[in-house]
Design a protein around this nucleic acid. Structure first.
Length: 474
DNA sequence: TTAAAGTCAATAGA
DNA sequence: TCTATTGACTTTAA
């Protein structure tokens, strides 16, 4: 079932209905809007299925997104997951027909929704779509129909290897299955997917803990030592950073919802989280970090807005100090570390804050096998890293515990002109839990602090690499 | 230009 | 099959 077909027309239709149904008011407010609201996102175009939509439709969904009030992304995904599982609907079907996304993306989105205020306009789109879908009383039936049609088409194809003209019948229903199973002749060019070995990942993680933002030189060295392409190392760092950041968001959300509604939270979401801690390592990117308890805040999570922004101004000072405190703790041992990969070019620059390393990473010697020489040093540095984290954390915490949380200005805009529209939107979206993600608890506080710290460090490093370290003496 | 955000799509696991 | 993970790529922002 490679690309399966999705029906463009169908999805368009359903979306339109969704928009209109829940909130009739909206049509009155804006005429053009309701009619074409649906549309498979631009993303769709890239997906193998070309959608016959007109551009205008894309616009309207974007408008909806722009006008949308703050949505509770966590709540939405939770409900979507429930509906899907309760009705035995798969992520692929849902993603392709409702969101215009692939299964993997849907899985990711449902498992780790970012808080609304952290999402870009584009990133909010799927959530708006989900909300609209949830509001559609016929949502499940439509998807079920879709599923049936797909199945039918599939069967048909199987029976007549000569598929082609046949598939139409299904498409008559509005689905484009034509290319569903057609094998594409494009494989030659495909390059095989790179799969990093556990040791390589460990090594990269260690390097990350040393420096979340390695210099080109460091990257080069890492690539050489691990025998990977430079681009792979670069990509790995990008992905790892962003995934860690996401983990933090999740915790933030969960902390918020938890404190808010005592026992409400969803098992599913929770499980994902739990999984992390347990998995502890092995493989993927986002787990590891944590010291026993909260997240060691992966280096980074953009809380820059607050701290970073001010770093140059005055107010950030405290944070800065805290940061360096943390570093200071680690420094000594770090210094000792030889020239291993992580160090190369950043002379004495403060290192990124590190979280304690994952248990696995701590094992002395793992990764050694694969790593030519640097292994030892890597370990040493690793341990140093964890130490620093601890130090940093405590000092930071005491200092900034007063910091205020949320702070992130919600970007949802409701420009004056659209205010009335906005109102109708509110009912449209029927969000009731908008505020849920708002309150963050101590844990999130800590994370934010750590994130600030990380951010500051990163900035400092950046600055240092450009100019000479000017005010580095902490 | 660089990093982040958002996705795709291959693939591992259940 | 379905979902989860994750390396790579594209788009967006700064």
């Amino acid at each position: 079932a490679p690309e399966s077909p999705m029906s463009s027309s169908e999805s368009v239709k359903s979306l339109t209905e969704l928009v209109q149904q829940p909130c009739p008011a909206i049509e009155t407010s804006k005429d053009g809007k309701s009619q074409e609201s649906s549309e498979p996102p631009a993303s769709e175009s890239q997906s193998t299925t070309p959608l016959p939509l007109s551009g205008h439709s894309a616009l309207s969904i974007q408008e909806l997104v722009a006008m949308s009030p703050e949505l509770d992304t966590y709540g939405i995904t939770k409900r979507v997951k429930e509906v899907l599982t309760d009705n035995n609907l798969g992520q692929r079907l849902f993603g392709e027909t409702i969101l215009g996304l692939t299964q993997g993306s849907v899985s990711d989105l449902l498992a780790r929704p970012k808080p609304w205020h952290k999402l870009s306009l584009k990133g909010r789109e799927p959530f708006v779509r989900m909300q609209l879908w949830l509001n559609d009383p016929n949502n499940v039936e439509k998807l079920m129909d879709m599923k049936r049609m797909e199945k039918k088409a599939y069967m048909k194809r199987r029976h007549s290897s000569v598929s082609d003209s046949q598939s139409c019948e299904s498409s008559s229903a509005g689905i484009d299955y034509s290319q569903g199973a057609s094998p594409q002749p494009q494989h030659q060019l495909k390059k095989p997917r790179v799969v990093l070995a556990p040791e390589e990942k460990e090594a990269l993680k260690r390097a990350y803990q040393q420096k979340p933002y390695p210099s080109p030189k460091t990257i080069e060295e890492l690539a050489t030592q691990l025998n990977l392409k430079t681009s792979t190392v670069i990509n790995w760092f990008h992905n790892y950073r962003s995934r860690i950041r996401r983990e933090l968001f999740i915790e933030e959300i969960q902390a918020g919802s938890q404190s808010q509604a005592g026992s409400s939270d969803s098992p599913s979401a929770r499980s994902s989280r739990a999984a992390h801690s347990s998995e502890g390592d092995s493989c993927d990117g986002v787990d590891a970090e944590g010291p026993p308890e909260g997240k060691p805040s992966g280096p980074e999570a953009d809380e820059f807005s607050s701290a970073a922004a001010k770093s140059q101004g005055g107010p950030a000072e405290p944070a800065l100090e805290a940061g360096e405190e943390a570093l200071r703790g680690a420094r000594p041992s770090e210094r000792a570390e030889p020239e291993s990969l992580e160090d190369t070019d950043d002379e004495g620059r403060p290192r990124a804050p590190r979280q304690s390393s994952p248990p696995a990473a701590q094992r002395p010697g793992d990764a050694l096998e694969t790593l030519p020489n640097s292994a030892t040093e890597g370990d040493a540095s690793t341990s140093a890293a964890s130490t620093s984290v601890l130090t940093g954390e405590s000092s930071y915490k005491s200092k900034e515990s007063s910091e205020k949380i949320s702070s992130v200005p919600s970007t949802s805009s409701t420009p004056g002109a659209g205010s009335q529209k906005a109102n109708s939107l509110q009912s449209l979206f029927g969000f009731s839990e908008a505020a849920s993600s708002r309150n963050t608890r101590d844990s999130s506080l800590r994370k934010k602090k750590a994130a600030n710290l990380n951010n500051i460090i990163h900035r400092l490093e950046k600055a240092a690499s450009r100019e000479e370290a000017v005010e580095w003496e902490f």
